[in-house]
Structure formats: structure tokens, C-alpha cells
Design a protein around this nucleic acid. Structure first.
Lengths: 205, 205, 205, 205
DNA sequence: CATGAATGAGTCTTCATTCAT
DNA sequence: TATGAATGAAGACTCATTCAT
């Protein structure tokens, strides 16, 4: 029987995704530990026990939310790095793409930013445990490349700059303004940030 | 009667402070909700129940840790703003002082950064509820002043810059490297960050 | 939406009632504070935590037991007063009906008699807090009416007589003889008491 | 060494008595189980631990309060019975003396009435465990004697009458009116009650 | 005698999870 | 798939009691 699926994951992938979106929202709003399975179920219009027809556990929900988000981020960063652009353009593309990915997965990003470190250390988050900080690595490599070839200041403290960029990018995940439009901002935001940052990174004329 | 102490809040202030330091460490390492009172007590070398001789509740411990930290930060920022420096020097001083305060209260800062938003919304954190984002306000005001008087670029997007600075500063709270020396770094770190940032903020020659 | 039930107050009313009966028995036997939730659960053949599927708290159980009992007593007294009988017949009916109600709810009555006053003062017993002493009021009114119209001695100290009656009636709640048959006694008991009491209240021939 | 006393009872009997009076008040007001040792200590102006210089345990305090009260009641009843009065006078004397004793030890009486039955069943109340219901026995004997010799109605249901008297007497322990004068009432009260009761008990002319 | 810090047992309550219907 | 009753393991908190100072 080729249709044999995992025991508990027996629901339409459609429904799964819906439920994960709800769960992500609740996790982001209250924190993973403060979120009860019943809280998620309430929000989804069902009873707590019913969630277990779709997921193995509360942990597995969060693990899936986060690893899906991170897989997407990895793909995004990988595509940018593989595009063969120069350091400056690569940096721009990384920032822009990150903003977009975070903006499109606000809840997951918020969970990851605030609780990723704690959760990764726990058993029950296997997919989260081994994850490398992709974005940070991409930034680091790009900055070093640019500092070496003169795209950026030669005396740039790349480790510091990397952290600054990283924190700036992830910081946006916390701007919980749900009122803000979902999509179009990311572009402007990224450009604004880049203006601020690049003018500090680029060597003077 | 100033000598009348609350029943539980008694105990010599010395011990209180010690215990709060321990608690802060554990909260920072595991997250507030994942931390058990027994975990704190273990670390402090006593039994869980004994903590209640010094504190009213787990919540009150966290509330006190965070509000003490924030009160200090407010004082720090206030002193800088009151010094009557120009926008650029004020900004430098704010960043330096913040780094120092965060560096000296690493655990509290980490808790605040990762869980402040969640915790402030809960009952049981009265002192945290009404707190204004002091640092952010100080940064915002300083940036606007500098943009107006030409200390910074006149076309500066102050809101964006404020957020960038804020996220950069708070980001350091997460750099958990306990190996890093506790004291001397903050100065260099602040200077390094300022170099990166100011060169982007200052108008071109 | 009348079908919207409180989350915990759900469960079929049948089971609720059963559990409350068990709880009442245990409360009556050991006292409210000395009763542990686990003790009730043991008696009900379930685990302590499972009780919280039916009730919000230990307090709410006792509150419901007592307020249900008192509501019934109020209805009983009200019906008697509304029957339009003369003072003497009203008094007889009040005593008889009270005995019956107490006899049919022995456990609740015992709890109320011994702990009602203490519990009503605590938070967590909202339904008990505002309750008027219905039976006492009914007795008082009837005695005064009878003293005025000559059904009882004109020089009757109604306040004293009211208390005597009240204490006599409630006293039966303590006669915990579980061996005594549940039903038929109340009638005889009430008649016996009335003989004792009325011959003292009725004017001499 | 003839001055060797019990280990913990090492305080002036004076102080002991004071503290027991405080304890009785608190027990009566809140119930034995709901009363904390610290609550008693607060009321006594000392710390919880300090009470253990005077008493072995919370249980021993209550046990002493109750057994002292009951010993006094036994003596009182005994004296009345030994006076060699007729049934009617004996009954009057019993009621009057009981009222007085209860009125002078309001708190202890209230504790006994509401919690005596529960507490006597627990270990830790040795002096309370074996106690006979002296008052009830005295009443019962007197009623039977009177029914036999014609002092009371010959067809009197002595068991019922005994209970009625008992409940009426103990009922006064609950009349918590702390405003009411402490002493002089008991006489009037007893006389009032006796009027009510005796006119029902005495055979008709 | 009194203090106050600490103990250790126990209580109520929560919650993720299971499972028969 | 969904329900709702039940489980069992924990967790926060309380409190009688002890003891060194």
C-alpha cells in the first residue's frame, strides 16, 4: 500500500498547514511553554484531543513550524549565494530575501527569534537541534569576501558587522505590528536598512 | 513606619540579592516558564519551599529581577540625556552606557530581551506592565534632534535608525558567551558598533 | 447562545451530581479543609486531576453543594409561607419541611451547619456569601405573626424562640447516625419536636 | 529536681493561658484547619516558631483548649448533679450553669461545637478522644428521673427532649455577637430558654 | 525566650496525552 | 476525524515544625 502514511499524520496536508499556522500564531503570541494545547485547539475550533489526529505532540508542532521556516530560509540564502553576485549585491540580496522570508512567516520567525535557542536545547526538537545558523554564516562569508576584495572597508570588523546585521534582521521579527500590511513593506524596509548600513560599510570616496 | 517590612520580603537584602542573581541565571538559561522553582532552589543549595521565605512567588522573583534591571537602565539613560551633550555625543554615550549596563546584568538583560514582551502582558508582573521602553525613547529623541541640527544626515529615517540601534544593542544581550570576560569588552564593543553605525549616520564630507 | 457551556462545567449533569454527592459525603465526614481533593477522587474511583474535568476547584464543589442545598431550602420555606396557613400551621409546616429537606440532604446540611459560617466568609464561595438565613427569617416572621394574633403566647420572646427553633432544627443535621433509616423518620421526628415545642408556645387553656 | 517541667511547657502558666486564649479566638474565628500557627503568632505579637517554646504543636494547643473547657463543664455538671435537687431544679441548674460556662468560654465552646466531632476522631487529640458527652448524659438522666417521678410529663420522649435541650444549649455557642456583653446575659438567657422549654415539659394542670 | 532561616511533607491545580465512542 | 472523559506526571505554593543564633 503506497498510501500508508505516518500513524498520526493522517490528515490532509491542507488541514495540517492550517493548523500549524494557527499554532504558530498562538506560540508567537504567548510563548511556547505558556501555550497550552487546548489554547491552540480553541483557536482552531476543535478540542484539544482532536489535535492528536494531526500531530504527534505539542513539541512536534513547534518543531515542524520552526524547521519548515528554517528550511525555507536556508533555501533562500542558498539561492542568493549561488547566484554568483559580487559581495555588495550578495549582501543586498541576502538582506532583502531574509526580510521577505521573515515577513511572510512572521509567527514562525518570532518564535525562532525568541525561543529558538531555548528550544533547540531540549529533547523533542530533533529537527531544530542540528540546525546551523544559515543566515549568519552567509552574512559572515559575504562580509569577509567583501572586506578582502575592497567592496567593503578593508579594516571592517567582520564579526561585529555580521552580528549587527544579524540582530538588525531578526529584530524585525519582533515588530509585531499586525496592523502593518503583510507584504509590500519588506522591500522598502530592506532598502531603508541597507541604506543605513551600507553607507557605513562602504569605503569612503 | 519605614521599618515595617512585608512578611515575606523580609530577610537580609544581601541574601535576597544573591538568590535573585541565581534565579536570573536560571531564568536566562532555560526560559521563565521552563524554569521550575525547584531548579532555582537547587542552584541556590536549598529546598524549593525555602525560597518562599524570601519571595512571594516565582512571578515576583522575575518581576523584581526585570524591574530592577529596567530601573537601572532608566537611570543610566536619564543621566546621559541630562548631561547636555550634543546629539552625536549623546548617542555615543547612550550606546556605551547601555552596553555597560547590559553587560553587567547579562542574565536580566537576556530575560528581558527574550521574554519581556510576553511576561509584561501577564498578571503577576505589575512592575513590568507599565514600563516604557526608555532606551528606545532616548535613542529616538536623540536621533531626531541630530537629524534636525545636522549632526546626522538630514534625510535620516529616524524611526528605522532607532530600531536598528535598539536591535543592535539588545542583540548583545543574547551573546551568551559566558567565557567572554565580563568587564572590559563593553567599551571596545560599544566603540566598534559606533564606528560601524556612525559612519553611516554622519553626513558625508 | 444557551448551548455554550463553560469549559469545565461541561460533562453530563448526571455525573456531576454523582460526584457532588460523593464530595458532600467526604466533606461532611472530615470537614472541608481536612478533605483532600484526592480523598474525594479516591471515593469516586478516579484520580484527583480528573475531578477538574467536572469542577473548577475544590471550592467550587463545596460552593455548589451548599448553594444547591440552600436554594432547595429557600424554595421549601417559600412554598410554606405562600400557602396562606395560620401561624401555628405554618410553623408546623416549616419544621416538618425543614426536617425533610435536611434529612434528604444530610451531608450538605451537616456541612452547612458546621462550616457554613466559616466558608461564607472566604473568597471562592461567591454563591454562599450573599445568602440570607431563609429558614430563620421564615420562623421569625411566623412567630411574630402568631404572637400578635394570639396563636402563640402574647408575651412570647420571639427572638429567643426563633433561635431555639433554629438550633433545634439544625441540630438534627449533626445526628449523623447513618444507620438510621433515611426517610420515614423525618415525619415522626418533626411531630415529636413539635409536640415538645408547641405545648410551650401555645397559650394555656 | 522538683522544678523539672515538661520540655516545651517551660513558660509561665500565665503566658500559656494568654496564648491559649488568643489561639482559641483564632480557631473559633477561622476554624481549626484554616488557622495557621503563624496566624496565631501574629495575633499574639510573636513569630510562629516562638510558639513552640510554649506548646508542642498546633494540635496540642487545640487539645488543651478543648479539654480544659470540657473539664470545666464536667465539673460544673457534676456539681449540679451532686447537689441533690429534684429533677426540675436540677434541669434548671444544668441549663443555667451550662449557659454560664459556655458564655465564659465562648471561643472554646464554639470550637467544640463546630469541630469537636471532627477533631476527636483524629490522632493528636488524645484528651479529646475519650471524652464523654457529660452535659448530654446529665440532661438525659435528669429528664428520665423527672419523667418517672412526675416532675415532667410521664409520656415524655426523653431522648428527643434531651437532644432538643442539648442543641438549644450548644446553639448559643454560635451566637457570635461579640458586641453582646460578656457576662450578665447568661442568666436572663437561661431563664428565657427555661421558660420556653419548661412550660412545654411540665404536665398540664 | 524570641528570631528567622530552613525543612519536608503534602495540597491544589494544570496539562499533555490517550482512548473508547 | 472529532469528542469528552480520564490519566499521570509534574509544578507552584503552604505550612507545621526545627534549630542555631
Amino acid at each position: 500500500m503506497p498510501t500508508k502514511k505516518k500513524p498520526t499524520a493522517a490528515s490532509r496536508p491542507e488541514r495540517r498547514t492550517e493548523l500549524l499556522a494557527v499554532a504558530a500564531q498562538v506560540f508567537a503570541a504567548q510563548g511556547y511553554d505558556a501555550t497550552t494545547v487546548r489554547g491552540i485547539a480553541d483557536e482552531a475550533g476543535m478540542l484539544a484531543g482532536s489535535l492528536y489526529h494531526h500531530f504527534d505532540s505539542k513539541e512536534s508542532m513547534a518543531d515542524e513550524i520552526l524547521s519548515t521556516f528554517l528550511t525555507g530560509l536556508r533555501a533562500t540564502c542558498g539561492a542568493v549565494l549561488d547566484a554568483g553576485l559580487g559581495p555588495r549585491d550578495t549582501l543586498e540580496a541576502l538582506v532583502t530575501a531574509s526580510f521577505r522570508h521573515i515577513g511572510r512567516n512572521r509567527a514562525a520567525a518570532a518564535i525562532y527569534r525568541t525561543e529558538g535557542a531555548h528550544l533547540a536545547g531540549r529533547p523533542g526538537f530533533p529537527r531544530l537541534a542540528g540546525v546551523r545558523p544559515v543566515l549568519e554564516e552567509a552574512l559572515s562569508r559575504t562580509l569577509e569576501r567583501g572586506a578582502a576584495d575592497g567592496s567593503f572597508r578593508r579594516d571592517l570588523d567582520t564579526r561585529l558587522a555580521c552580528r549587527l546585521l544579524r540582530d538588525a534582521i531578526w529584530g524585525t521579527a519582533s515588530w509585531h505590528e499586525p496592523g502593518a500590511g503583510p507584504g509590500q513593506d519588506h522591500g522598502e524596509l530592506a532598502r531603508g536598512y541597507l541604506t543605513l548600513l551600507l553607507d557605513g560599510l562602504t569605503p569612503r570616496v
